[in-house]
Amino acid sequence: MSTLSRRRGRLSPYLLILPGGLWLLLFFAVPIFQLGVTSLYDPSGSLEQGYAMTWAFGNYADALSQYWPHFVRSLVYAGIATVLCLLLGYPLAYAIAQKSGRWKNLMLVCVIAPFFTSFLVRTLAWKTILSDNGALVGFLRDVHLLDASGRLLATPIAVVLGLTYNFLPFMVLPLYANLDRLDGRLLEAANDLYASPARAFAKVTLPLSMPGLVAGTLLTFIPAAGDYINAELLGTPNEYMIGNVIDSAFLVRLDYPQAAALSFILMAAILAIVFVYIKRAGTDEVV
């Protein structure tokens, strides 16, 4: 093999990753850097007069002291929605992967079908479902789970339900991909060793599905924590999440330093949670 051919062989991997690397640099690294710079601008500036770089690290302390309840609310709502998605999504993913037979493809289409509709339209549909005059609220009142003046819309329950519905496919699909590769011979071996179905699940199925479970919870929790559409449409200002505050700071109040600082705090909090979660889950494999 000639020297030129060997050189091309060594360069091939780098040439293959070059387009993706440039894409990440231009549309991820550069905007993140600019966002970090913006978070340190003088908070007394304005969009009309311009901002001066004063290395105002106090923007972070001010943002956190003013809006820490929204951070906590976002993490709590996202955590509850993730747990609900797991409780609903794991049995569904298992049924599709192991029990659906010739209906597998149809059930998968049903899982991804909501993606064919806009996120906004789906959330507006839940606004109709949870409305005070809707069938669901009427039924709950009839069975006395809600009193005559009780409601679901404009409550934390509505926001969590919206998050759960919108992000459920992100939980189901990684779990299905993992469970579909499960070797059935392992379950047969567990049965041969007189393991009960519950014990076989706890000792075989669940451990082997941990990569899909970790991936599903991350794919659900991370976007849910930064979401603002569900709180905007299904809640009130009392249910607003940190995404609503960031949206208002960027687009309404035009307070770019504070908005950027809030964004960085949210990213840092999510990264810390993800790091601890992956370590506690006992696996670094999330696919």
Rank of each mutant, 00 (worst) to 15 (best):
L15A: 15
V76F: 09
H144C: 00
G45L: 08
S118F: 08
T82P: 07
Y90A: 07
I17P: 06
V111H: 08
F33R: 12
C110G: 12
L75P: 04
I129E: 00
I96M: 02
F27A: 05
A135H: 10
W55K: 10
V111N: 06
A135L: 13
A97S: 10
I17A: 12
P69T: 03
L40V: 09
L106E: 00
A113H: 03
I112S: 11
F71S: 04
I129M: 11
N59F: 06
L22T: 13
Q49Y: 08
A135R: 12
C110A: 14
A78C: 08
G20Y: 08
A81D: 06
A125Q: 05
T123V: 12
Y94D: 01
R141S: 00
C85L: 02
L25A: 14
T128V: 13
H70P: 01
N59P: 10
D147P: 10
V30F: 13
A154S: 14
A63R: 03
L84T: 04
G50P: 11
A52N: 13
R141K: 15
V109Q: 06
P69W: 03
L25M: 13
F119N: 02
V76A: 12
W126L: 15
A113D: 00
L15P: 07
L140S: 04
P69C: 06
L24C: 13
F116C: 08
F119L: 13
L64M: 13
S46R: 11
V72M: 10
A78K: 08
P19H: 08
G58L: 04
F115A: 06
P114N: 10
A154E: 11
W68G: 03
